[in-house]
């Protein structure tokens, strides 16, 4: 303890870190915490096992033909991704701020020379990296299975599938972080995240189906409403990437392919990207304006 008095005291302390330096520091810590945590392990194992299972199953049952379309695998993976990935990302995001607030660690972090924007962006970046890592492991192992079992996978199509899935994960993480900012307790945040997951995965699609029948919606209206759901945009983006058109999605898909043409994949990707950017921006604003930690 006596060593303190020997330390020369300077008049001015080191200035605060640069904005991105602070963000990076938080991102690194969040990433480390995430990959050491149980949820990361659990989700990674679950996603990997399911992805491998889907790839494997979609390749079996072909009998002696030795042929399997990657399209079939992708369709199976698509269903899996749309169920599991949003769940992973939403719950991971929901714990980000609310958990720290509940444990009382948030106030201590905020008392450091950092801004709230840095904290939230850093946490988002760290969690996003961890999520993408988790997805890469799942997709990587399942690509290994595909390589071992068959030849029907193209690296470009697969890379696009991985990229769009990562984008979907970023979007859902962004929504999760927004939920986390507005929730006082981490259990509440998780609850809201599950509700949002249910709404995006099932309720909105079923609702749109019902309204398209009840209100006789026109194809452009159905398309417009459908792409508001990031899950639908993601699905269409993957399909348009593999099939070059959305004809497999019936009249609505054909309408979209016909009117939007080459712009379609970009519009779909932009919609998902908007889901990644806007909720995070809103979360940042709300967090900065919060009355208490």
């Amino acid at each position: 303890m006596t060593a303190l008095t020997a330390t020369p005291i300077t008049v001015h302390a080191a200035p605060a870190r640069s904005f991105f330096g602070g963000v990076a520091a938080f991102a690194r810590r969040e990433f480390r915490d995430a990959i050491a945590s149980r949820w990361f392990l659990l989700y990674t194992i679950a996603f990997t096992v399911l992805a491998v299972g889907v790839s494997f199953l979609s390749l079996s049952g072909v009998g002696s033909h030795g042929f399997a379309g990657f399209g079939r695998t992708a369709a199976g993976l698509l269903n899996l991704i749309m169920l599991v990935v949003p769940l992973m990302a939403l719950t991971a995001g929901a714990g980000a701020i609310a958990g720290e607030r509940e444990r009382g660690t948030l106030i201590y972090l905020l008392a450091q020379p950092v801004s709230r924007t840095q904290v939230i962006l850093g946490k988002y970046a760290g969690l996003a990296t961890a999520l993408v890592c988790s997805l890469c492991i799942g997709f990587g192992v399942s690509a290994g299975v595909l390589a071992w079992r068959t030849g029907g996978v193209g690296i470009a199509a697969y890379a696009m599938l991985v990229a769009f899935t990562a984008l979907l994960a970023l979007a859902m993480l962004s929504v999760g972080v927004l939920i986390s900012v507005v929730s006082r307790r981490s259990a509440v945040a998780t609850g809201i995240a599950l509700f949002v997951w249910l709404a995006l995965v099932f309720v909105s699609d079923l609702g749109l189906m019902a309204s398209s029948i009840l209100f006789r919606l026109r194809v452009q209206e159905i398309f417009g409403l459908a792409i508001l759901n990031p899950m639908q945009s993601f699905k269409m983006a993957v399909i348009v990437n593999m099939n070059a058109s959305l004809d497999v999605l019936g009249p609505v898909g054909a309408y979209a392919s016909f009117t939007l043409g080459r712009a379609l994949p970009w519009i779909l990707a932009a919609t998902v990207a908007a889901w990644a950017v806007l909720p995070l921006a809103l979360a940042t604003i709300l967090f900065a304006r919060r009355n208490s930690p």
Partner: peptide, 9 residues
């Protein structure tokens, strides 16, 4: 038109 919703949960 509902074919839009194939491949969904």
């Amino acid at each position: 038109n509902l074919r839009l919703f194939v491949h969904t949960p």
